[in-house]
Design a protein around this nucleic acid. Sequence first.
RNA 1: GGCACCAUGGCCGAGAGGUUAGGCUAAGGUCUGCAAAACCUUAUACAGUAGUUCGAAUCUACUUGGUGCCUCCA
Length: 480
Amino acid sequence: MKEIIYKAKKEIYIYNTLKRTKELFIPINKNKIGMYVCGPTLYKKIHLGNCRTFIFFDVLYRYFKHLNFNIKYIRNITDINYSFNNSFNNKYYSYFYKIKTYYSKFNKVLNIFNLLSPSLEPRTTSHIIEQINNIKKILKLKFAYKKNGSIYFNIEKYNKYIGNYGKILNNINIYNQFEKTNSFSKDKKNNLDFVLWKKLKNINIIKWKSLWSTGIPGWHIGCTTISNKYLGSYFDIHGGGVDLKLPHHECEIAQSNVINNKKKNLAKYWIHTNMLTINNKKMSKSLNNLILPYDIIKGKFKLTKNYKINPFILKLYLLQTHYRKPINFSLKSIKNSIKNYINLLNIFKKIKKIHPKKTSSSNINIKYYFNLCYKSMNDDFNIPLLIYNLIKINKIIDKCLNNVLKISFYDLKKIKKLMKIFLIDILGLKIFSIKLSKIKIKVLINKILKIRNEMRKKKLYLYSDKIRDILKNYVSIKDK
RNA sequence: GGCACCAUGGCCGAGAGGUUAGGCUAAGGUCUGCAAAACCUUAUACAGUAGUUCGAAUCUACUUGGUGCCUCCA
C-alpha cells in the first residue's frame, strides 16, 4: 500500500505578541515543545468566550502532535482567589462543593467539544509551598515589600533594574499613566504594584500560614510558579486571552524575570486569542450577556431562538474566525453557517456514495490541496483558511457525486485521508449524521400545520385530528 | 488620554499582491407523475483619500466610523 500522507514542513510562523510580528517557530529544545495556557478560575460556569480560547489551543496541541513534536501542554486551574472567600460564605463545605461542581462542569463542556486533556492540569492550591518559596526569593532580592502582613511586588524598582513592564502591551509608559488612576489599596506604594501574598482576616476560612501572615498567594504568582515548575524558567509558548495581557501576563513576566534572574520574559512565543463579543460588547456578568455553551446546545438560549445547535457546528463556528480577530456572536451569523458546516461534516457519507473503478483516472492534484492545508496552518494557525480549503475540496466531492467531475479510486482514498487528518485529527471534530437541521424541521411542521388548517376549514376533521395525533410528540396544537 | 484591533454585496460571513470562498435570499436548470430534498448555473463587493506596484479587497500613510484593554476577566 502506498504512503498517501504528504508530510508537512515544520516551518511554522507564529504571531508573537511580545514582538508584534510573525516569527519562524524554532523550539528551544529541537523537537520538544512546552506550552502553557492560563486556565479557568473556578468561580462561575465557563462561557463560550472561554471555550473559544481553549478550543483554539487544543487545535494547536493537536497540530503539534500531528507534526510529531513532543509537546507538553500545561493548563492550570485557579481554585483560590481573593474574592472566593466572600462568594462561598466562608464555609468549607460551600467552598469544596462549589470548586468540585464548577470543575466538573468545566470538564463536561470541554468534553462535548471533544478537547484533549492537557498533559497536566495543576491547581493553585496544590502549589502553595512553591509559591511561598518564590515570594521569599523576590523579597530577598528586594523586588517586593511587606505592608500590613501582605507582600507587594515593586514595579518602580523592577522598571529601574530590569525595566520592561508593559512590554506585551507595547506600552512601557503605562507605569507613568497608571499614577492617574484611582488607588484601591492604600498599602501599595504605586497603583501598578500587585499582590504576591494577601493577608486575610480571621473570618476567612480558606487560607494558609506563611512567615508573613495567614493568607493566600496572589493570582499572578500562581501561574509563574506552576509554569516554572513543569516547563522550566523559559519555555516555548505561553497562551491566553487578550484581556489577560495586562496585568496578568505582564506580572507573570516581571515575577519570572526576578525569580530566574533573566530578562527572558518567561516564554519565547506569546499567543493571545481575541474576544467573543455579543452585540459588539464583551461578555460580562454585569451586562448579563454571558453565552453559556450548554444553553445553546440544549436550545435554551434566547438569542438563538431556542434552536438546538450541535456542539461541533458551534466549534466550527468558533474556529472559522482567525484567533486574533474578534467574533461577534449573532443568530444570523451562526444560522447562515449551519448548512455549510453540515455539508462539510457529511463529507465521509458522500465519499462512501462515490464508487470509481480502479482503472478510472482523474485530474485532481491532491498533493496541491495537502500543501494548501498545511500552508494555512503553518501561517500563524490560519484555521479559517484551512476550513476554506476544506470547503473547496468538499465542493470537488459534490461535483464528483453529480458526475460533473471524475475522480480516480486512489485519489478518492487520498481525499478521505486528507479530510480525516484535518477535520478529525487536527480540528478535533466528530462526524455525526444530520438528516434535517432542527430549523428545517420547524419549517416543515409549520407547512404541515398550514395544510391542517385548510382541512379544518373544509371540515375534514377526521384527517386534521390524525395530523394532530401524529405531531403530538413534536408540537402541541391548540385550536382557537 | 495611552496601546491594540476591526470595516467585504440585499443579509451573514471567509479571503494568500493576479484566478475573486461559502451560506441565506432571488432567477434559471438537472432530476421528478406533481412537489420536497439534493445538485448545477447566474446576479450584486471590498468605508474614504492618497501612495507603492505592470497589477491592491490584500501592502504603506492619513481620514472617518466602531470595538477591546488600561479594575476581576479567555
